[in-house]
């Protein structure tokens, strides 16, 4: 299974194996990773699964759809060029080794 590394805003890292097809948000919730909320359950509505994708890996991802791009407007922490919503990133074999950093707060 592809592995994904979550980096907390205080620098602590946790790497987990994620089944292909699962989202970065859902995998974080299942693995008890702090720093991702997922209030709307993965619909790109609430903006509480905001992550910063390692800039070198950004090109591996599909571009954000319009609903994700819209919700990135209202994330609580700073929006950066590498901001994405974890619920819209589906893990697949090509994303093995993906590193995402969580902002200091989601709400």
């Amino acid at each position: 299974m592809p592995s994904v590394t979550y980096v907390n805003s205080n620098g602590s890292r946790k790497t987990v194996s994620v089944a292909a097809g699962k989202s970065i948000m859902a995998a974080a919730v299942e693995n008890n990773i702090d720093g991702i909320v997922g209030q709307c359950g993965g619909n790109a509505i609430c903006g509480t699964c905001h992550v910063y994708v390692d800039p070198s890996q950004l090109s591996l991802l599909e571009p954000a759809r319009d609903d994700e791009a819209a919700t990135l407007e209202i994330v609580a922490a700073e929006r950066r060029p590498n901001s994405r919503l974890g619920c819209q990133i589906e893990v697949k074999p090509e994303l093995d080794g993906l590193v995402v950093e969580m902002p200091e707060y989601q709400l």
Binding site: A44, D66, A70, I74
Partner: peptide
């Protein structure tokens, strides 16, 4: 119109 919604919330 998700962008309208996001902007309206803000």
């Amino acid at each position: 119109r998700p962008l309208d919604h996001a902007l309206a919330r803000k």
